[in-house]
Design a protein around this nucleic acid. Structure first.
Lengths: 329, 329
DNA sequence: TTGTAGGCGTTATCAT
DNA sequence: ATGATAACGCCTACAA
């Protein structure tokens, strides 16, 4: 393997000079810079990232912590796009990435998790699908031992940024649109998980809407489960004018229930997953670019690792109707 | 961070002795082994895998090369399970994993790819979704620079194993079952990609069946595209008794086409993806445990890295019918 | 501006 | 059986 040493030798300079060149440090004459780069090309030198990670706390590695929802594989789509977006951007930024799943450290204490991450030379973390109940992760963030980016959870401190769409506003908008299209008054809202950040925000959005349009609203917890949404709709759907769901999967469950009950009620969802195209009917939903969000998160993390302070980053979304022929083309 | 040095100091032994203990090497007295382990517990020592990777060619790292099919996000489900299965098993086996996507090195030459992997201290690779056209990957495998496991492609050499189900047999069985249930004679077979290994095997399975049951068969290439399967079915479905598809996604496309044409033909698919539960009708398909296959692949890779020779590993599958209520519970 | 040398945390090779 | 010690490839004061 061609190492920095070889490059130095061929270029007739010291190792440290080569290091400076490949890392873009100042205090190198234009002349030597060119020469070194030339040799790098010639020898096809690729710096060993493992050695770099070992020697400097600068060039840290990034861990993706993904909360795979084992129950509903249908939304693997979202996680896959998260992972893809992050890894692609990381490669662009020359960052090393390892992927971990929540399930892998369910039995670990915070200290154990921190030690594990450190043993991997991890200095930056992106967390997907975190809820209020994840005490270990909250501790991890609070420990300030790592730079963190949390997707869709409003946690910010010096070392931590939050990235995601404005769920409150998005929920408000998609529900409003559907309600106005159908002139509804009595809303059945099937929310997500009781302790989810996203759930809370979306619920607030519904609250805004109810106040503004003077609606009545019944709220039930669907836990993002298609089956529960189905059951809830069976039970309460008849006396309502619309079923607003905090996720597409639940919206699908609701719609199937309505079909079986042989009554029509408008339904709207949230997320814009592909699956929506397969259920026959169209419905309004909120579409976000998950890979894009994740890429943005990686960029933000890189900034944090570079010394920037944590902040909130809002990403774009749009209201759409999804139908079969749009999906398969 | 507590390092091996600290452990050595506290235990009153040399660094190298600690190293031997934590790596299970021989030539350590029971007494010191116990003592060292005790200190390891006490200090909560976790070996730094980055340093280990740098120092030894033994403790190699593993790269997952995933061919994400950008066109059809519906099968993210499969890739996600592959990734999950591999990473979980790797953690169990104490192997480091990085995940890469084909798209990241589409423009790289084989040499560049090899250099890149080496720069990451990669010594083992698992490849998902490889086709005959992936010259770079063929070169990579042939170079013998890495230990490889290829999923669903019959490539074996000293350093390379192949892991997957017997596609020929599985295709034969699922088609046979469906045909016998419906007493068909004229088969429309929608195959996958022209240069896919899996496609070829499945086609052979159909060949076996056609011969055995004295059927007639029209074969078209659907490229695993739902839309193409749809079009093919529109064009040729009417004059056939059954549509056998090389993937669930294509089976869904075929079924939708038949519904629109308002004719009934039995359809069978392949893979057992969740999406199948959402299309209304049931159909026969082949179900495999993707996470399990991937975990098995990781085990095989660990063996290869330990010096074993490459071989073929067959994993189990089953014939199933998927319907909505099975999926959402 | 350039080069020297001391780590980073392990592993592995030798002596002892 | 145990312990120095030299790699591994790179980064970074610090010295020249």
């Amino acid at each position: 393997m061609v190492s920095i040493k070889d490059v130095a030798k061929h270029a007739g300079v010291a190792i440290s000079t080569v290091s400076k060149v490949i890392n873009g440090y100042p205090n190198v004459s234009e002349e030597t810079r060119i020469k070194v780069n030339q040799v790098v090309e010639e020898l096809n030198f690729v710096p060993n990232s493992v050695a770099a990670a070992l020697s400097s706390k600068q060039a840290g590695r990034v861990a993706l912590l993904v909360n795979l929802n084992v129950k509903t594989q249908a939304i693997d789509e979202i996680d896959m796009q998260y992972i893809q977006g992050a890894i692609n951007k990381a490669m662009e930024l020359n960052l090393d990435v390892i992927t971990l799943f929540f399930s892998m450290f369910k039995s670990k204490t915070m200290e154990e998790l921190i030690r594990y991450l450190k043993s991997q030379s991890i200095t930056g973390i992106i967390i997907y699908g975190m809820s209020k109940e994840d005490k270990v992760l909250h501790g991890l963030i609070a420990s300030m031992e790592f730079k963190c980016v949390v997707i869709d959870a409003p946690i910010v401190n010096e070392n931590t940024s939050s990235v995601g769409i404005d769920h409150r506003k998005a929920q408000y908008e998609v529900a409003r649109k559907t309600i106005e299209e159908n002139n509804c008054k009595r809303v059945l809202y099937i929310a997500g998980k009781r302790n989810g950040y996203v759930t809370q925000e979306r619920l607030l959005g519904m609250g805004d809407l109810v106040t503004e349009l003077e609606l009545t609203m019944l709220v039930r917890w669907g836990d993002f489960s298609e089956l529960q949404a189905r059951n809830i709709t069976m039970k309460y759907g008849k006396n309502k004018d619309i079923v607003v769901c905090a996720s597409d999967l639940m919206a699908i469950g609701a719609m199937k229930a309505l079909t079986e009950m042989d009554i029509f009620r408008p339904v709207c969802g949230f997320d814009g997953i592909i699956l929506m195209g397969y259920v026959g009917k169209q419905m309004n939903t909120v579409r976000q670019d998950f890979a894009g969000v994740s890429a943005r998160a990686m960029e933000e993390l890189a900034l944090l690792m570079g010394g920037k302070e944590g902040c909130i980053v809002n990403t774009p979304y749009s209201l759409v109707r999804m139908k079969y022929m749009d999906i398969i083309c």
